[in-house]
Amino acid sequence: MSNRWNTGLNWSDVTPERHWLNRRALLAGAAGAGALALAGAAEARIAAKPSPYSTDAAPNTLEDITGYNNFYEFGYDKSDPARHAGGLTIAPWSVKIDGLVDKPGDYALDDLTKGIALEERIYRFRCVEAWSMVIPWIGFPLAALLDRVGVQPGAKYVAFESLARPDEMPGVKAGLLDWPYREGLRIDEAMNPLTILATGLYGEAMPRQNGAPIRLVVPWKYGFKSAKSLVRISLTDTQPRTTWQGLQPREYGFYANVNPEVDHPRWSQASERRIGGGLFAKRVDTIKFNGYGEYVASLYAGQDLAKDY
């Protein structure tokens, strides 16, 4: 399956940004066309319409995206998920939806997503560890699902819970964190059109190490907010407690918006290294809200983001 992507090309074969930016080489065009061809082939697999929210930056290779993951359920090392996630059972899969909703219940994944149009969202992805990638997700707005189950007026937050299955997840078995992994969003963040539930990437069903079969993607927040392999979505009236907040409340806040002005207590968030450039992966300035400020900055009007980190 993954051989389909084995065109003999490496990320290093794709024209570096500095070249195509200054139009130095015709190769730039060739590489761009190559990327489009890949995307085209992808659409043949999972029908997904392009989105105006997509970045035009070149996505990372499938190899980068599926070989460099923080998914502590499978271990601390970034190569652990690719190594250990293969045995994860993802069918059947159901998601429990409860709390302040009109139609709570245990939904089979297919029923949950039936009839919702899939889109390709090529998003920048910024990890709290100061590295970043560009990932061509396939998914749909979380709002579409929330509308389907009916959000009650008292709901102020959405809580997410990831799968914790010790016999298939060595990191869960080893107790690396306080499982299950929990995350949360404020309701307006959850309803923002940028917030998606992703079920695939690069035109394929979601690889297990990236959070199959369904995961959250919130592109203006640090990656740990985008919980993987979701089994429960709860609408609540109180701010849910998240896994990382529980571990290090001073380091990981509820909001976790990408923000170069608010450093992690242990490291700077002013810049990030773009994964995929090999030995000379370029370090670039981090942009507030990961560059999605035009869509989300208004959500935080009047909030002190240094305090609400």
């Binding site: 490496n10 980068d64 460099y68 190569s79 994964i275 090999g278 030995l279 992966a281």
Partner: peptide, 15 residues
């Protein structure tokens, strides 16, 4: 390993 390309996806961190 730099030359064999065996340093993983983020060779800088590996080194």
């Amino acid at each position: 390993r730099i030359f064999t390309g065996d340093l993983g996806i983020d060779p800088v961190k590996t080194i």
